[in-house]
Design a binder for these strands. Structure first.
Length: 333
DNA sequence: CATCCACGGGAATCAGCGGTAG
DNA sequence: CTACCGCTGATTCCCGTGGATG
């Protein structure tokens, strides 16, 4: 049933992209100067999740690498690396300048200084999910680096700009914007069809079932592919040679929840207890939440530590923190 | 206005790990 | 082999800030 699992993985970047030529061309144009060893303009890719922003950014960079001998690139997902330190560290990592950098002993802007010393070939940086970055000042720092070109990716322009100070707003006001819309049903179907051809056995899935997957994904290619992957896995485990309508229906919920499920599994027992309590209770004040937590586990952590856990879980979008100070409540997402 | 409660930054402390000198 | 050292990530302690609340 499954011939090549890689093409169903979320991080897979196809050799050819479908239905996104205008966007690819816009981005290629902004990166054009790099062909001549000059920096490109900053670009900002906007649109809902699963609309192909990350895929197109990576794809375009790959094509660029094929045409330029001397170039450095790095992809950073700010959802995972959300501190200033982590982002700078990842960038230095890409240009091999991390030697003897230690988390503790490194003076405040040692990392930035190192990056400033960088005098290699043009360096193109993709910052995905920039709105998750807690200290946006890195953007300003990067903006001023002569040989660094940044490609920013975010969901909504409004949300991003509301988190920036005036200095950054005016800088980014002029950058190249490329907007992505949700994929219409027929485009999703053809994307899924291509993945099925590459990754699955012949005739493993029909047009009709593909349409069902696409419909359940509501324009989100990532969800669509996740559903297809789960359907293929199920069919495989059941020893079938085709993905039937029933299999697709069964795969829809787990396809949708997969990302969250993976994150939940990474939680420590203490964090998991907090998450479970919120799942059961719905919405709680910090005080009540802590009391229940302290009752449930042996050897509870301190309130301060629990606050760290909760803010991390907020980052990972497992819980929602609403209100400030005394009005604060937590609820599961 | 005093008090309460929660947030979150920063320093101090702890515990585990790997390397190494004796 | 063992004791010790240096490093790191996790946790805790301490505390300033700020919006309710009475």
């Amino acid at each position: 049933m499954i011939r090549d699992a890689r093409v169903l993985q979320p991080q897979f970047i196809p050799d050819e992209v479908e239905h996104r030529n205008p966007e690819v061309n816009r981005l290629s144009d902004t990166l054009q100067p790099i062909m001549d060893g000059r920096p490109g303009e900053t670009s900002l890719l906007l649109g809902p999740s699963g609309a192909g922003k990350t895929c197109i950014a990576k794809y375009t960079l790959e094509r660029l690498r094929e045409n330029v001998l001397d170039i450095n690139t790095q992809y950073v997902n700010c959802w995972q690396d959300y501190t200033r330190f982590q982002v700078l560290y990842r960038l230095l990592d890409a240009v091999d300048r991390t030697v003897d950098v230690h988390r503790r002993s490194t003076p405040k802007d040692e990392l930035l200084d190192r990056l400033r010393e960088y005098d290699g070939p043009q360096f193109v940086v993709i910052l995905d999910e920039v709105d998750q970055l807690e200290d946006k000042s890195v953007l300003y720092d990067l903006y001023r680096m002569p040989s660094i070109t940044t490609v920013l990716i975010a969901n909504r322009e409004q949300e991003l700009f509301s988190q920036l100070d005036d200095r950054l707003t005016s800088r980014l006001q002029t950058c190249v914007r490329i907007s992505f819309d949700k994929y219409p049903l027929d485009e999703l179907v053809s994307i899924l069809g291509a993945r099925a051809r590459w990754g699955l056995a012949e005739d493993a899935i029909d047009e009709q079932e593909l349409a069902l997957v696409a419909d359940a994904a509501a324009g989100d290619a990532r969800v669509a592919i996740s559903i297809l992957r789960n359907a293929a896995r199920r069919a495989d485990q059941d020893g079938r040679d085709r993905i039937t309508t029933d299999v697709v229906r069964a795969a829809v919920p787990e396809g949708r929840d997969e990302v969250r499920q993976k994150t939940v599994e990474q939680l420590t027992p203490h964090q998991r207890a907090l998450y479970d309590i919120l799942q059961e209770a719905g919405e709680l004040s910090p005080g009540d939440l802590y009391d229940r937590y302290a009752e449930r586990v042996d050897d509870p952590k301190t309130r301060r530590t629990v606050r760290n856990y909760l803010s991390k879980m907020d980052h990972y979008r497992l819980v929602v923190a609403e209100g400030k100070n005394r009005a604060r409540t937590y609820r599961p997402r």
